[in-house]
Design a protein around this nucleic acid. Structure first.
Length: 691
RNA sequence: GAGGCUGUAGCUCAGUUGGUUUAGAGCGCUUGCUUGACAGGCAAGAGGUCAUGGGUUCGAAUCCCUUCAGCCUCACCA
């Protein structure tokens, strides 16, 4: 029989030849025996499904001592195991030949010997992967040795139950799948805790010949050995295991040992279980699962019955898995690859808060972080640049300038205008809404969402809308009430932003007003969620949309924002209520730079119209209107609205929808239809008016 | 080989129990704005057959399956 091998020296340890049970070529040889060359050992021909018919010659030499799969085959077929090597990789006594010679040298010698005896059929170049030591790059090949294992069956079941029952919660929760897949009883493997290293904690097992004694101390082991053997043994008669335990074997004690909990339980009783573990999902099994196992193993005993019952014995309540930071080629950033930017240089370029902003805003929960530091194509070096960090830096700049503007205003002792009162009320509501939103994101560890909600609120609502609204005309002072309240809002924003950007927020906090000693942003009371008026928020949103409409018409017609414009609004109950009773007129005029906002019941000449919600507006233009461009614009919008209305009509004419969907959903669709039809009517009118 | 995750705008990503006016943000891009906070800025705009093909449902970016692509973990190539 012809066999193929890349390690001829292991032939000396072969104890069988295996074939696939379905291989027609060799079927008739099953159960017979062959003679291994050189050692002239008679070994059986066995059938095993592991052997691939297509691979190699289809005949597999089986060396249980020097190949993991061969070992398993050996177990299945009760084969003899012959270890042909010494500890240092030279040939051992069991090999029978070349005693004490290095295995790589022997590999060549054996080929020659086989050739001389006429056993070689052919030699071909073959590329295969060779295992190497991470530390020394030495070639590592399997050899059967004694190792210590931890039985995982019960521990795995405990760890699974902890997460399944909700005593430990994963964020994001889809990591449960990976966790389950690894730990379920069909897949879990016993944990090999032996490590062949010269540092670490030596496994506390002592040998006396074939006997082994596991004990806390050497003395205890000796006592056990004496009792067992009945001999008057000395310490020198015992030999301690040379392997050390896997590093994770002590790391899994961390939730307890960090509080010195095995020695004294005072701190442990206070802190254990901790609220959240923040870590990467790549060490879910190495560390997270195993910490959970030890928590349940020792927690009850250490905490005492009452506390255990009250607080639980899980090491932590939540696990927040962060994403892996990767480079633009999606490789994990690591020291060995040298593909990470230099943090200190990044900080020099963008500021610490800028870098924090960049990291956190790109870290959506559980997903990988593709950090945008580009790689130089020529030198392959990572550039210490990042658009995300630049965004953070610009945000700092924005905050600084916003306060700068406020502080630069002269403050006068006069009452706040109606528009300012309205603006402040609105901002207060928007702030409360934002507190609520951010709180919600924190609860579910959506840190990037929390940050971006704050970013948008501060930049778009506070700076672009609110500050512009309360900003007095040039040369005019700001009233004291508006100034003071605005500083207070600013302070609240700094408190909320502080966890993300601690440096600038603390700085501005102290710059904005006199603070007493110890009155620092970092320890200030976080804003509480307060009720807010949704109608007011929606009304203001309508005004903002209207202003955008006016600005767009200015833009398209090449008109300066400084030029005040007359705007008409079709008189409806709603528009009248908004601009007179609710008093948004001043807000609209100031923000849109309107010379006037008049109600009208008919179409006005020389105007360009636009729709906002279901209200119709028209802007008066002194120049000739480009009728063709207007027709195009309105027609495009009209087509869109018609498509929209049609899709809803289709839905509503479907009896099964009307009968099966919840009433609220059907009502909403009906309202959408009405609104859509109202908009179509306005657009249609505007189009007719053009003609 | 086993298992898992992900495919949404040029890029990086949101879209939470299926129904918020036929999909959102930031960056980038286009256009217009230089002197009272900020050009590291302001305003507006363009840009998407939600990878593919099927299914479930009154209704799918969202749930299920197919295919394709990318990534990860574990094992391993005689």
């Amino acid at each position: 029989m012809t066999i193929a091998t890349t390690r001829p020296e292991t032939i000396l340890g072969d104890t069988a030849v295996a074939i696939n049970p379905d291989d027609e070529r060799y079927k008739h040889l099953a159960g017979k025996q062959v003679i291994v060359p050189m050692v002239n050992r008679v070994v059986p021909i066995i059938q095993d499904a592991y052997v691939e018919v297509e691979f190699g010659t289809g005949c597999l030499k089986v060396t249980p001592a020097h190949d993991m799969n061969d070992y398993e085959i050996g177990q299945r077929h009760k084969l003899e195991t012959i270890d042909v090597f010494n500890d240092d990789g030279t040939m051992g006594e069991a090999a029978g030949f070349y005693l004490g010679e290095d295995r790589f040298a022997v590999r060549k010698k054996i080929v020659k010997e086989l050739e001389a005896k006429g056993h070689i059929v052919k030699i071909e170049d073959y590329r295969n992967k060779v295992g190497r030591s991470e530390r020394t790059n030495a070639i590592v090949e399997p050899r059967l040795t004694k190792q210590w294992f931890l039985d995982m069956k019960d521990l795995a079941a405990t760890a699974l139950k902890a997460v399944d029952s909700g005593e430990v919660t994963f964020y994001p929760k889809h990591f449960w799948n990976m966790y389950y897949n690894w730990l379920n009883e069909d897949n879990v493997r016993d944990w090999c805790i032996s490590r062949q290293l010269w540092w670490g904690q030596r496994i506390p097992a002592w040998y006396y010949g074939e006997e082994v004694f596991v004990a806390e101390t050497e003395a205890a082991a000796l006592k056990m050995a004496r009792e067992k053997t009945g001999k008057d043994l000395a310490l020198t008669d015992l030999k301690q295991e040379e392997d050390v335990v896997d590093t994770w074997f002590s790391s899994w004690l961390w939730p307890i040992s960090v509080f010195d909990g095995f020695e004294t339980q005072e701190e442990l009783k206070y802190y254990y279980p901790t609220s959240v573990l923040v870590t990467g999902w790549d060490i879910m099994f190495f560390w997270v699962a195993r910490m959970i196992m030890t928590g349940y193993e020792y927690g009850g005993e250490l905490l005492g019955e009452d506390l255990a019952k009250a607080k639980g014995i899980q090491p932590f309540n939540d696990v927040y898995f962060t994403g892996m930071v990767r480079d633009e080629k999606r490789r994990k950033m690591s020291k060995s690859l040298g593909n990470s930017p230099d943090a200190l240089t990044l900080i020099e370029n963008y500021g610490a808060d800028g870098v924090r902003f960049g990291m956190m805003s790109s870290g959506a929960a559980g997903n990988d972080i593709i950090f945008d530091a580009p790689i130089d194509k020529e030198t392959k070096a990572v550039l210490n640049e990042s658009q995300l960090c630049a965004q953070g830096m610009k945000f700092c700049n924005k905050l600084w300038n916003a306060l700068n503007m406020l502080k630069g205003k002269e403050v006068a002792d006069k009452p706040a205008s109606e528009e300012n009162k309205m603006a402040m009320q609105w901002l207060e509501y928007r702030l409360s809404q934002t507190v609520e939103e951010v709180e919600d994101h924190f609860k579910t560890y959506r840190l990037s969402d929390a940050l971006s909600a704050l970013y948008r609120f501060i930049w778009n609502d506070f700076c672009s809308w609110y500050l512009e609204l309360i900003k007095p005309a040039s040369g005019e002072p700001m009233d004291k009430e508006t100034y003071d309240r605005t500083i207070d809002y600013f302070g609240e924003m700094m408190i909320m932003l502080h966890p993300f950007m601690p440096f600038i927020t603390e700085e501005l906090w102290h710059n904005m007003k006199e603070r007493a000693d110890g009155e620092d942003c970092v320890i200030s009371q976080y804003p509480k969620i307060k009720a807010y008026d949704n109608t007011m928020l929606q009304n203001m949103e309508h005004v903002r949309e209207m202003v955008t409409g006016v600005r767009e018409i200015r833009n398209k017609n090449g008109l300066s924002p400084k030029e005040a414009m007359a705007v008409y609004v079709k008189k409806t109950d709603w528009s009248e209520a908004l601009y007179t009773k609710s008093g948004y007129l001043g807000v609209a005029k100031k923000m849109g730079n309107l010379s006037d906002l008049q109600f009208t019941e008919t179409d006005v000449d020389s105007t360009v119209s636009f729709v906002c919600g279901t209200e119709e507006y028209a802007v008066f233009l002194e120049q000739t209107i480009d009728v063709e461009a207007e027709r195009k614009r309105i027609t495009k919008d009209l087509e869109h609205q018609k498509g929209f209305v049609n899709s809803i009509k289709k839905k509503l004419s479907n009896e099964r929808f009307v009968n099966n969907a919840p009433a609220a959903v059907v009502d909403k669709e009906k309202q959408k239809l009405l609104d859509g039809e109202a908009r179509i009517k306005i657009l249609q009118d505007a189009l007719n008016n053009l003609n």
